[in-house]
Each structure stands twice: as C-alpha cells, then as structure tokens.
C-alpha cells in the first residue's frame, strides 16, 4: 500500500445521510481520493473488523465517525478505531450531539423495547418474544449487540479531536476539513470545524431581523404562508438561527424553512436548547401567566423543538426517572 495518509469512515446510529454527504463531494472526491488512501469504509468498501484490528495503533491518519452511540457494538468499534487513529472526527450531528436518534433519551430502554416488540400497531407478538443477546444455533453461539440504556454522543464514549457539525455536514466543510488536516496545521483539540458565530450572521434575511422582536403567536411552518424574503422569527416561526452555529450558509432558510439547529451551538453556549428557549421567551409580548402561556401554546413540543439534534449533548442528557 502507498504511503499516502490513511483515512477511515465509519457509521454508528445514523441514517446514512452522512455517508451520502461524502459521496456529494462529487468531483472533489477524486481530489480526496488522490491525496489519501481510504482504508476502511463499510458502506462502500469490503473491509472487516479483523482488517482494522490488524493495523498498527495510530496508523490511520484520520477517522470520521458518524452516528450516535446506542449499542455495545458501536462502542466497541468506536474504541477500536480510536486506538488505530491519530485524529478522530465526530462527523455530523449524531456523533457531535446525539442527533435525532438521541430524542430516544426521552424514553427508557424498556419503554422503547416494549413499544417496538409488543405495543406497536404493526406488531403481532402474543408470546412477547424479545431479541436475545446470546443463543445457540446449530451448536454455534450467536451473539447480538446490546442496546444500551442511553443514546450517547461520540465524545461521551471515546476521546474526540474535532467535530464536523451538520445533519449532514456540507461537502464544502468536509473538503475544508480534509485540506486543513492534510496541511498539518491542526486546530486546537475540540474545535468544531465551522465558523464560530450564529447562523443569523450568514443568513440572507439578516437585514430584516428586527432588533426588538415581540412574539404574540408562534406558528409552525405549515400553519402560515411564509414571506420568502423576511426573517422567519419576525414572522413568528421558531427559527433556531440565533442559537445555532454558522457554516451551512443558511441552507434551510434558502428553502424557506426555519433552521432547526443541526449545527449545534457556538463555543460560547453550553446548552443550545436552553439558550434558544431563553432568547425566544424573553421576547414574548405578554406579562402575565395566562397571556404568556397562550403565546407558548404555539410551541407544543419544546424538547423536540430546542433539542432536535442534541438531547444527548444537553445538560440533562435524558428524561430523568426519579426512581433510580
């Protein structure tokens, strides 16, 4: 094998969109492929765990791991790849902050299993059979990975060097990240590889964002006809732009949809949801409880709205069960 830097991609609890975003590099993928050797990429190339185990520790230059961590197998693979890699990048919202899969942290593992294997309307399972972790088949031991109690971010399981945010990250950011790493100029550990300012700063509708917002109603995008030119917050739609990191170049806003926060917070914010809640609520026009609650009725699911991509990375991380 050549002595070009070795690159690995791996996926955990994710939808496949992050893999797609690598392919979306289009002709630039040739640039990447010319500069590095991709030595592990299960979605596209035939390599096995053994092949990775056989590599020397630290011999992979950079590994991009996407997806949240939900199973024992994902933990094991993430730790194996960590050992073999010089740089590990949490790729995409799920690895970065838990992503949409981490909304499952609103439920216990038992609640999820009960629904999936018993109560779901599409399931017929009178014997209440559940998957077993181990069983014997033709005198062979067969093992399944365990579903863990929590959905975790990648950095709650292994040490992470950098983060590429987004659901999924844009090809432009991926290309920049690869070029940065190849240049040998490593940014400080823990850097999120996207501009450290609010999305509003790069939003084409920024000029129409009022400095004194005052909310009388909140609307969900399907409830109103949205003006294609005006700031969405000024139209009463929850746009996470003020609490979200820039870097996507306001993709959703270009499609006349509000930002739902996939790039996570800037470095000055610890908890993206709390920050957004704070700034939205401060600008409600009412002063008494009943009036305030009336306006807030327009946000029926605050957890799903403010932590859509990051419940696992939030300060509370999960629904608290008071009986542990």
């Amino acid at each position: 094998m050549s002595d070009k830097p070795k690159l690995a991609f791996y996926w955990c609890a994710s939808c496949g969109g992050c893999e797609e975003s690598v392919v979306d590099l289009a002709e630039d993928i040739l640039m990447v492929a010319g500069a590095v050797d991709i030595i592990f990429w299960p979605v596209a190339m035939d390599f096995k765990k053994n092949d990775v185990e056989a590599m020397e520790d630290g011999s992979i230059f950079a590994a991009m791991i996407n997806g949240a961590i939900r199973t024992s197998e994902q933990e094991e693979m993430a730790r194996l790849i960590r050992r073999k890699s010089k740089v590990v990048i949490a790729y995409g919202s799920c690895a970065h902050m838990g992503g949409i899969p981490s909304l499952a942290n609103e439920f216990s593992r038992e609640q999820i299993m009960e629904f999936m294997y018993q109560e779901s309307p599409s399931v017929v399972n009178p014997e209440k059979i559940r998957p077993m972790l181990n069983f014997k088949h033709n005198s062979q031991n067969v093992n399944l990975p365990e579903i863990r109690n929590l959905v975790r971010t990648l950095d709650q399981v292994i040490d992470v060097d950098y983060y590429l945010p987004g659901c999924p990250p844009t090809p432009k950011l991926l290309k920049q990240a690869v070029l940065t790493l190849l240049s040998g100029e490593f940014p400080p550990k823990g850097t999120v590889l996207s501009p450290d300012e609010a999305l509003c700063e790069e939003c084409p509708r920024k000029e129409s964002k009022p400095s004194d917002l005052s909310f009388k109603h909140f609307y969900r995008p399907h409830e109103v006809l949205l003006d294609k030119t005006k700031c969405l917050l000024s139209q009463g739609v929850v746009c996470m732009g003020p609490a979200t990191r820039a870097g996507c170049e306001a993709l959703c806003i270009s499609g006349n949809m509000p930002c739902s926060g996939c790039f996570g917070p800037t470095s000055r914010v610890r908890d993206q949801g709390a920050k957004m809640l704070s700034s939205l609520c401060s600008n409600i026009s009412e002063n008494d409880e009943a009036g305030i609650d009336g306006v807030l009725d327009g946000i029926p699911d605050p957890v799903g709205t403010f932590y859509r991509y990051g419940l696992a990375a939030s300060l509370l991380r999960k629904k608290i069960t008071e009986d542990v």
Binding site: E289, I292, L296, P302
Partner: peptide, 21 residues
C-alpha cells in the same frame, strides 16, 4: 422579572417533560 417569568413558564413545561417534578 417579566423575562424571567416568560422563561420560567416554558422551562417548567420542558422540565416536566424531562421528568423533573
């Protein structure tokens, strides 16, 4: 204090959803 009250109303509902009495 009005700002706090507005945040309090939504935060309380959110904490309730997240299992905090």
């Amino acid at each position: 204090n009005y700002k706090m009250l507005r945040r309090f109303r939504l935060l309380k509902r959110m904490l309730h959803t997240l299992g905090i009495d």
